[in-house]
Simulated scan of single mutants.
Amino acid sequence: MEGVNVSTHPEIPGEPIQTRTALLEKATATIQGFGPVNKIHQHLCAFHFYGHDMTRQVEAHHFCGHLNEEFRQCLIYDRPDDDGRLIGLEYIVSEQLFLTLPDEEKKFWHSHEFEVKSGVLFMPGVPGPIQRQDLEKVAKTYGKVIHFWQVDKGDNLPLGIPQVMMALTRDGQLYETLAKDVENRYDISFEKERENRAYIKGPDHGIHPLANAAGKGLQTVLKEVDCFKEGKST
Rank of each mutant, 00 (worst) to 15 (best):
Q73P: 00
G14L: 06
P129M: 02
H52Q: 12
Y142K: 02
L168S: 15
L121T: 06
I130A: 09
H61N: 07
S118E: 08
A167D: 10
V4E: 03
R79E: 01
H41R: 06
L159N: 14
G143I: 03
A198D: 00
F122T: 10
K223S: 07
V126R: 00
T8F: 15
S233F: 11
E11G: 11
L178Y: 09
T141Q: 10
P129K: 01
Y199F: 06
V37N: 10
R185C: 00
A22H: 00
H62G: 03
I130L: 10
I92D: 10
F98D: 05
Q131A: 13
R56P: 01
I17N: 06
H208K: 11
L174D: 03
E69T: 08
H43L: 12
F190E: 01
A139R: 00
T141I: 02
F49N: 14
E183I: 02
P102D: 10
Y199T: 01
P13R: 03
G128S: 04
I87M: 06
Q163C: 13
N184L: 15
N5V: 08
V225T: 09
Y186I: 04
H112K: 02
G143R: 05
L44M: 13
G125E: 07
P127A: 03
S7A: 15
V116T: 07
D204Q: 11
H112T: 05
T169G: 03
P80G: 10
R194L: 00
H9Y: 15
F63R: 06
E136W: 07
G215W: 06
Y91K: 08
G65M: 04
K201L: 03
G231W: 01
A29T: 04
V93P: 06
A139C: 07
T28F: 11
D152P: 04
Y175R: 00
P36H: 05
L168K: 13
F122R: 09
K229M: 14
S94E: 12
E113K: 01
W149D: 03
K140G: 09
F228H: 15
L89R: 08
I161R: 11
Y199R: 05
F98T: 06
C64P: 03
N5H: 12
V116G: 03
N184H: 15
L135H: 04
